[in-house]
Design a protein around this nucleic acid. Structure first.
Lengths: 220, 220
DNA sequence: GCCAAATATTGGTATATACCAGATTATTTA
DNA sequence: TAAATAATCTGGTATATACCAATATTTGGC
């Protein structure tokens, strides 16, 4: 990445580095964690530590999706569907979508990875009761169709909230990452043109692997 | 913040918590660090740990500045000017602004704090050679004027890059925070209407204290 | 009651040690 | 040669201990 080290090249072990620098292993471990947080290296549990490829840039202004945008940089993103099922609205979802707690939902979770490393995952909840237009004749009403067409069929706006937060253990498992390490969480409430919320989206990103770019036009 | 604890209320010490949970102090320390990263508590070196106020929301779509936006939520932001001087373009600045290394610049750094806690700081570099329009008669050419009027006088666009990264020691000192804890870094290259870059802005945020919101309009 | 000095407490940090369980490598066996 | 076994190495984690230096608190003297 920095020119002198090849991507995915193995680094010396924590114990070796600790000894080389006359430092305890715990200290070396903490230092290496900071290097990981810089996006310069990544670790695989019980395998070793390796040089990271450069951060992937996501231009949030580009009309393109993350996958398309990455491809433009020569980075291939693999998308894996790891959950596609019926779910029930919990308190938070019910409030967000203005539906009753316990209402049926479709839930879909996908992992977005690059060369085997998950960059982020996304869970979408869609309320079929809120989009009858997707069930009119000729359109299947399965979750695949509902969720797959949410962008195409329904013009929409989205309320987005982004925060930096430690990654909870269940999310860390999806990302293949140590629990409590800090990441980026995004939540969206997607609305139809008339303002009705019909879809809730949650993303959790490994923040050390990406950077976000944008072009702002200040017009005053 | 969660209803049962008052903002800025003191928490038990690390040693006490460790003993209460039959856990070593280091373990308690790590757990408390995660709680800080959630934005639920903050620590002050050698004083104790306290309950955090809720995260401040910054609506990036609002035409308002962070200060104004916070005020709307009832949060008063204090702005402190901690540097206002002449500087010299280093390699990075020179490249960003398309000027020669060593060119004169004005540099201004301001801290943005809420009830004594710095939320983020911002350093601006402006190249006077790139905006002669600010030196025409009637406009002072001091850094105060140059930087103060950059938004008002010069219509502009900005190229923005945002990344999650550990906070370097020098930046951590500004923020009153432990070095290497993870934060949010933002860099902007501000351009005039004709596309000429004239200003470089760098912000470092304590990501655990804020959340960013936006409204997206998807029009396809 | 007031002020100064001594003491206790605090978070931050570093060390040495230990265990875990999977991954990797070396060795042995058939 | 190939497969099975043993030894080694790995990062992740937890513990007990220790020191630092600033802050709070208590104590002592007047």
């Amino acid at each position: 990445m920095d020119g002198s080290l090849a991507e995915h090249e193995g680094l010396p072990s924590e114990r070796t580095i600790a000894e080389q620098h006359s430092v305890s292993r715990m200290t070396a471990h903490k230092a290496l964690e900071a290097i990981e947080a810089e996006g310069l290296a990544y670790s695989e549990d019980r395998r070793g530590r390796f040089v990271s490829p450069p951060r992937i840039n996501y231009n949030v202004n580009s009309m393109a999706s993350f996958v398309t945008d990455a491809k433009r940089q020569g980075v291939e993103i693999e998308v894996e569907l790891i959950a596609d099922k019926k779910a029930i609205a919990d308190a938070k979802l019910a409030t967000s979508l203005f539906i009753a707690e316990g209402s049926p939902l479709f839930e879909r979770t996908r992992l977005f990875s690059s060369s085997g490393h998950t960059i982020f995952f996304e869970t979408e909840f869609i309320a079929p009761e809120l989009c009858p237009e997707l069930r009119k004749p000729g359109i299947r009403s399965g979750s695949e169709k509902l969720l797959g067409e949410r962008y195409g069929t329904l013009g929409h706006t989205a309320d987005i909230v982004v925060r930096m937060a430690p990654i909870q253990p269940s999310d860390a498992a999806f990302l293949g990452v140590t629990a409590w390490q800090v990441g980026i969480e995004q939540e969206q409430i997607v609305r139809k043109k008339d303002g009705t919320a019909f879809c809730f989206v949650r993303q959790v990103w490994r923040g050390e692997l990406v950077q976000f770019s944008a072009q702002a036009i200040e017009n005053r």
